[in-house]
Computed example of a mutant assay.
Amino acid sequence: MNRTSTHRITICTSCRHKGDTCQPGYELIKRLDAAIKAAGDTISEDFEIAGTACMAGCDRPCTVAYYASRKASYLFGDIDADQDIEALVDFAKQYAVLHDGWCSSVDRPGKLRKTTLARIPATIIALEDRQEPIS
Rank of each mutant, 00 (worst) to 15 (best):
K37C: 15
H7G: 10
T115Q: 06
I124R: 08
A53S: 11
L75M: 12
Q83I: 01
I85T: 07
E132A: 13
D59V: 09
L88R: 01
A50P: 00
L75C: 07
A87I: 03
Y74D: 08
Y74L: 10
G101H: 04
S105V: 08
I134R: 13
Q83Y: 05
R113P: 01
M1R: 06
A92S: 13
A53F: 04
Y66G: 07
Q83D: 13
T63D: 02
M55A: 07
I120G: 00
M1Q: 07
S73G: 15
A35Q: 02
M1G: 14
P61M: 09
S69Q: 14
G51I: 08
K30G: 04
E86K: 15
K30E: 11
P24N: 10
G77A: 02
I11E: 03
A72C: 11
I124S: 08
G51V: 08
D100L: 05
C15E: 03
C15A: 05
A118G: 03
Y95K: 08
R3S: 11
K37D: 14
C54W: 02
I79F: 06
Y74M: 09
R119H: 04
T42L: 02
C58M: 04
R16H: 09
G57Y: 03
I124W: 00
R31P: 02
R108I: 05
H17G: 06
T6F: 06
C22S: 11
D46L: 10
I36Q: 02
K114N: 15
E132Q: 14
V106E: 15
D78F: 01
F47C: 12
D90P: 00
E48C: 08
A118M: 07
G110E: 03
R113A: 14
A35C: 06
H17T: 15
D107M: 08
H99F: 00
T4A: 12
C103V: 15
K18Y: 07
D46M: 06
C54T: 11
G110P: 02
T115A: 03
Q131R: 12
T52C: 12
S14W: 00
V89E: 03
W102D: 14
I43E: 10
I79Q: 12
R108M: 15
D46T: 13
E86N: 14
D20T: 15
E132T: 15
A38R: 13
S5K: 11
R60S: 13
T63Y: 01
L32M: 04
I85V: 13
D107Q: 14
K71G: 08
D59I: 07
D20E: 13
W102I: 15
R130P: 01
T116M: 12
